[in-house]
C-alpha cells in the first residue's frame, strides 16, 4: 500500500504548495487525482515518488515508513515507484540516445546485462521503432520521447506507477496508446497507479477511482 498521511510539502516553508494532504492507494488500484493548475498536484506526485521530502506528514510504502527522500531514500524503495513526468523534453537527458535513456535505470542498479533484451521488449511495447532507439531526444517528437520515458519508468518493473500529467503534451492517439501500455502493464503485474491530471474525462475513463484535489487536502 502507498499511503500519504497529512502531507505538507513545498519549496518554501512559509508557503507550502501542499497542506495536509491524505491519499492512499492499494496494490492493483488505479487512482486518478484531479486538480486545477498550480494546486500542488505535481509536488504531491513527487512526494509519492519519494523525490521530494515533505515538511510534515508520513509516507508509507508497502508497510515501511519512508524516512529519507530523493538520494536518501533506500534504492529498493525508490525503484519501487516508477515516474513519468509531464514534459518529456525536460525529463530526458539531452545527451543520451533513447536506447541508453531506457536502459539507464538497469545500468544504475547494476543489471547491465539485462539491458539489451529488456529495452527491445519495452520499445516494442510502447511502440518505438528500432531506428528511433539510436536517436537523441532532439531528433524525435514529444510523443516519441514520452513513449521512451514511459519505457524508462517501466524498465525496473515497479510495483507502483506515478504518472504526473503524462499525457498533457500529447495528442489523442498517442494518449490512448500510452494509457493502453500502462493498463497492460498493470493487468500483467498488479501494480498500483497514481495518475495526476486535470482532464476529468480522461481520468474517469482511465482510472478505477478518481478523487478531486479538494477532497484530499485539509481546509
Amino acid at each position: 500500500m502507498l499511503e500519504l498521511d497529512d502531507i505538507t510539502a513545498g519549496y518554501d516553508r512559509r508557503a507550502p504548495a501542499v497542506r495536509g494532504a491524505h491519499l492512499s492507494l492499494y496494490p492493483g488500484e488505479s487512482l486518478g487525482l484531479l486538480g486545477p493548475s498550480g494546486c500542488g498536484k505535481s509536488t504531491l506526485a513527487r512526494v509519492a515518488a519519494l523525490l521530494h521530502r515533505p515538511d510534515r506528514g508520513t509516507v508509507t510504502l508497502d508497510g515501511r515508513t519512508v524516512t529519507g527522500f530523493f538520494h536518501r531514500a533506500p534504492r529498493s524503495l525508490r525503484t519501487a515507484v516508477g515516474v513519468v513526468f509531464q514534459q518529456p523534453r525536460l525529463a530526458a537527458d539531452p545527451r543520451l540516445r533513447l536506447r541508453d535513456l531506457v536502459a539507464e535505470p538497469l545500468r544504475a542498479t547494476g543489471r547491465r546485462t539485462e539491458a539489451g533484451p529488456r529495452v527491445a521488449e519495452l520499445a516494442e511495447r510502447v511502440g518505438l521503432g528500432a531506428d528511433l532507439l539510436s536517436r537523441r531526444p532532439h531528433e524525435v517528437s514529444d510523443g516519441q520521447l514520452q513513449r521512451a520515458c514511459l519505457a524508462r519508468a517501466l524498465v525496473l518493473r515497479p510495483r507502483w506507477l506515478v504518472c504526473d500529467e503524462m499525457t498533457a503534451m500529447l495528442d489523442a492517439s498517442t494518449t490512448a496508446a500510452l494509457v493502453a501500455v500502462v493498463e497492460d502493464y498493470r493487468a500483467e503485474t498488479g501494480a498500483g497507479l497514481l495518475a495526476v491530471g486535470h482532464d476529468p474525462v480522461l481520468l474517469d475513463r482511465w482510472c478505477g477511482r478518481t478523487v478531486h484535489w479538494n477532497e484530499i487536502v485539509k481546509h
Binding site: 523525490l51 538520494h71 525508490r78 530526458a92 537527458d93 539507464e104 535505470p105 544504475a108 524498465v155
Partner: peptide, 26 residues
C-alpha cells in the same frame, strides 16, 4: 533541478552516478 535528474534518482542512480552520467557531461 532538472526533471531528468529526478528521473535518474527514481531509477535508482546513486549521487556519484547522477554526477558522472548527467551533471558533469552537461
Amino acid at each position: 533541478g532538472r526533471a531528468y535528474v529526478d528521473a535518474a534518482v527514481s531509477g535508482g542512480a546513486s549521487r556519484w552516478r547522477v554526477a558522472v552520467r548527467h551533471l558533469v557531461p552537461g
